[in-house]
Design a binder for these strands. Structure first.
Length: 866
RNA sequence: GGGCGUUUAGCUCAGAUGGAAGAGCGCUUCCCUUACAAGGAAGAGGUCGGCGGUUCGAUUCCGUCAACGCCCACCA
């Protein structure tokens, strides 16, 4: 007769079981909040991945954390909505498509705007499914019926609404400012989209002669080519070296323009020569100085960072070529008075790594200062909190130092700015195509060509996805979201902006908690990067080891704020755990009819000591597991459960259960206990390893889906304190065996004093491979003593003991105990300790000393007797 | 130049309110015991970054220094 265990292979095979379950979960509607119609709403939104992107390890970590939260809450009875979706990722996506066009020798201008955007939509339709499939493959319990896309109709409506309202409130304006320009993407960028990196360059010093021929002033720069656009030289008003020059004119070398020397407090007299060339069109600081002194703004770089007509004979040269040409020309006319290697920070485009240029440009901006107040207050007051809390400091620091957010992008893929211009230059901002200029009534209008920063729509994600600006049921039910899970790298890009927009438009924080997780690193703790070649593809890991092992490896390292090291060895380890769990259930099914374990409850009314012990342990672990999970300390929660399952349940309890199962008496209770303990372990593991646990559930319980089951509620059981003593007795014998090299087959007679109950005797005999007889005598010299709480084991030396090995064993114990005794005595001999330490501590110390002394003496006698 | 974080076993990390240093992996030895050799049993291994201070007692609290990491910043 085959048991149901025989239906299970002896080896856990993720590849076989993982494809089975996702369709089932979806069919049953487990992932929809409607699955728990009476549950409290619990909503999280996915940080929308780039629609044409591919799943990387950062997603795998983020989605695993989301899923662990969502699945546990669902089992706890919440109406969970994990809302999935994707981001159109303006520049990034456009770059990808442009690259593919380039392979065909085309650029976007060849296609024209409309055809190009159509092309991107086609890409979206092809590649958008890739990331979705990958997210499903990872087991993410998203409600796909509510999937959203930042460029879909509803979200576009939300973007439009927000833009128009902010414009009407005066918080969005169009203006000419120095912005960061990426000459490769050919678009403006926001401040935070520029990454700064130190690079080697030259600091060149140039002499600008006074127009009256009375001398010269020397300025320093790392961007020599910008001198073509200089319209002034500035010095500090109190700098005695230069004070007398203020008001003079200098003749700009190469160009010949006459420009003034002005005094400005923005100049740092300590730096360089203390005199600075002023290029108002190509430097933010210079722009401000130019404003203060009425200097001209001359653009010398165009959209591709090529010198403009204003650059005279350098026009047409790329900025880098122009830099060299300018330096060479200056040198030729002896205006170059210094050139030294200089390491300085340059700004790079966060999308393509190209050096950005500060350029004067007409762009749209959000006045963020007026949005930050509520966003700071919400966090300060605790209405929304960060986990770990210290991120709040960074959040505040960031919020308090914000400049206006440049939101217009000169690309085609995105939400087009809802602004129209009439021939007279009036601006009309409207929710739909206006018929006429709202200022002058002109009927011929052209729409602004720019689109909005991708992050503008991302900022609305927690409510736009729920239907806002319409007053939908979902919006009422699921806003605010409960928790946002994200990496620290997008706190500023995303979290802070969602906070501002949510508070502005819904008057309430978008989420109650922000859980910050770390970066996935390699086994050596290095950041994963393409250049280091140490990136790990989560799907390749899933293919090789399984999704569940990958998820468990990630979650077991994922405490808030901590980086997650990932090595294939770790994944191998979690797969071994999966195998262990698999086999534990297989063992149980040898003794239980398949499907005989109830989906909930079913705890034995009168468990024996062993069953009671494991149930008490389970209850305690479950309680701690819940506390840790509530604090998002998943590494600790799953570490705890993992250790308990393996070390206590598999290594001790299942072994012990074999004794009871071999008998008729008590076997039924043990079967029952074994079933519910394994069932509850499956439940607690399910959020982390959903596929494996669901598969095992189908064998063990066979009723309903584990994904839709209830979270364990474990009644209190007597913890059976004697269990530790029993284990000590068994371990003592095992140690002795190991030290003496005695095989397990060799039966050892063991005298036990203190009259342990029958069940203890049975267990020790079975587990330690001993034959027990009650011991009442004394004769210590001829025996090895194994203290175990109220009992003591005695193993006769004769014929069993190799004196050398035994001496080693005893000496180790003596050394350990001596250290203890010395330390403890010193403490107790210290009058201050006895006087001032709490009574309980002193008592404990005395007991400790007495116990250790007694055991030490015993070991010494044993050693002498050898 | 500011701000934040980290420093405990070979590696990756736990160690609430201060009272005999922990886990996983790796390593050593033994064992194919009827769920599992992707396993079992036993074991070795730590001046808790340095120095001061508070305390009867500090990995834990305070100060300081050091190393490493990250973020922000308009040094031309």
């Amino acid at each position: 007769m085959g048991t149901s265990a025989d239906l299970m292979k002896a080896v856990y095979d993720p590849a076989e079981i993982e494809p089975r379950w996702y369709p089932r979960w979806e069919e049953e509607g487990v992932f929809k909040p409607e699955y728990r119609p009476d549950g409290e709403p619990f909503c999280v939104v996915i940080p929308p991945p780039n629609v044409t992107g591919s799943l990387h390890m950062g997603h795998a970590l983020n989605h695993t954390i989301h899923d662990v939260i969502a699945r546990r809450r669902r089992m706890q009875g919440y109406a969970v909505l994990w809302l999935p979706g994707a981001d159109h990722a303006g520049i990034a996506t456009q770059n990808v498509v442009e690259k593919s066009l380039a392979e065909r020798g085309l650029n976007r201008f060849d296609l024209g705007r409309e055809a190009f955007v159509d092309q991107v939509w086609e890409w979206k339709d092809v590649y958008g499914w890739r990331i979705t499939r990958q997210i499903r493959r990872m087991g993410a319990s998203c409600d796909w019926t509510r999937e959203r896309f930042t460029l879909d109709e509803g979200l576009s409506k939300a973007v439009l609404e927000v833009f128009v309202r902010l414009y009407e409130d005066g918080l969005i304006y169009r203006g000419e400012r120095i912005i960061n320009w990426c000459p490769r993407c050919e678009t403006a960028l926001a401040e935070i989209e520029v990454e700064h990196r130190p690079e080697d360059g030259d600091l060149v010093k140039i002499a600008y002669p006074f127009s009256d021929g009375s001398g010269e002033v020397v300025v320093a720069t790392t961007r020599a080519e910008t001198m073509l656009g200089d319209t002034g030289v500035a010095v500090h008003p109190e700098d005695d070296r230069y004070r007398h020059m203020v008001g003079k004119q200098v003749r700009l070398p190469l160009v010949g323009r006459l420009i003034p020397i002005v005094a400005d407090r923005g100049v740092d007299p300590e730096f360089g020569t203390g005199a600075v060339k002023v290029t108002p069109a190509h430097d933010p600081l210079d722009f401000e100085m130019g404003e203060r002194h009425g200097l001209d703004r001359i653009l010398v770089l165009d959209n591709e960072a090529v010198i403009t007509e204003a650059g005279g004979r350098y026009a047409g040269l790329d900025r880098m070529a122009a830099r060299e040409a300018v330096i060479k020309a200056l040198d030729a006319q002896s205006a170059l008075v210094g050139r030294e290697a200089y390491r300085h920070s340059v700004g790079l485009c966060y999308r393509c790594d190209t050096v950005v240029e500060p350029i004067l440009s007409l762009q749209w901006f959000v006045k963020v200062a007026e949005l930050t107040g509520p966003a700071i207050e919400a966090v300060r007051s605790g209405r929304s909190r960060f986990i770990p809390g210290h991120w709040e400091k960074s959040y505040f620091h960031w919020m308090e130092n914000l400049r206006d957010w440049c939101i217009s992008r000169q690309i085609w893929w995105g939400h087009r700015i809802p602004a129209w211009y009439c021939p007279s230059g009036h601006v009309t901002v409207a929710r739909s195509d206006p018929d006429a200029c709202q200022e002058c009534g002109a009927g011929v209008l052209t729409r602004d060509a720019d689109v909005l920063d991708t992050w503008f729509s991302s900022a609305l994600w927690p409510f736009s996805t729920l239907g806002w600006p319409d007053e939908t049921e979902d919006l009422a039910r699921f806003y605010p979201n409960m928790v946002l899970i994200t990496g620290f790298d997008i706190i500023y890009f995303w979290v802070a902006r969602m906070m501002k927009m949510g508070l502005r438009f819904l008057g309430e924080v978008p989420f109650r908690e922000t859980v910050i997780h770390g970066l996935v690193r390699d086994g050596a703790g290095r950041k994963m990067s393409k250049s280091l070649g140490n990136t790990i593809d989560p799907l390749a890991v899933a293919d090789r080891y399984g999704v569940d092992p990958l998820r468990l490896a990630l979650i077991q390292a994922a405490n808030p704020g901590q980086d997650v090291p990932l090595d294939m060895e770790w994944v191998e380890g979690t797969r071994r755990f999966g195998n262990k769990l698999w086999n534990a259930v297989r063992f149980a099914l040898r003794h239980l009819p398949a499907g005989s374990v109830p989906p909930a409850g079913g705890y034995p009314a009168r468990p024996g000591p062993v069953d009671s012990w494991v149930l008490a342990g389970l209850g305690e672990v479950a309680a701690r597991f819940d506390r840790l999970s509530d604090e998002y300390r998943f590494s600790d929660a799953y570490g705890l459960l993992y250790n308990f399952s393996w070390a206590e349940v598999f290594d001790w309890y299942l072994e012990m259960s074999k004794v009871a199962l071999a008998r008729s008496e008590g076997a039924e209770v043990t079967r029952q206990t074994m079933g519910v303990v394994l069932r509850d372990i499956l439940k607690m593991f399910h959020p982390a390893i959903p596929f494996l646990t669901e598969e095992l559930w189908s064998n063990l319980v066979g009723e309903g889906l584990l994904a839709g089951a209830d979270w364990p509620e474990i009644p209190a059981f007597d913890p059976v304190p004697r269990m530790d003593d029993l284990k000590a007795l068994v371990s003592g014998v095992r140690q002795f065996r190991a030290a003496q090299g005695l095989s397990r087959r060799r039966m050892i007679p063991l005298g036990v004093s203190g009259a342990p109950p029958r069940w203890v005797i049975d267990l020790v005999e079975a587990m330690a491979g001993v034959q027990i007889h009650m011991w009442t005598g004394q004769s210590e010299a001829g025996h090895i003593r194994l203290p175990a709480g109220p009992w003591e084991g005695f193993i006769p030396r004769r014929g069993l003991v190799d004196p050398v090995a035994e001496r080693e064993r005893i000496d180790r114990q003596i050394t350990r105990l001596q250290r203890l005794v010395v330390g403890s005595s010193a403490k107790l001999e210290n009058p201050h300790f006895v006087e001032r330490a709490p009574e309980s501590v002193v008592m404990g110390e005395r007991r400790k000393l007495a116990e250790a002394s007694e055991r030490l003496a015993s070991f010494r006698r044993q050693r002498e007797a050898l």
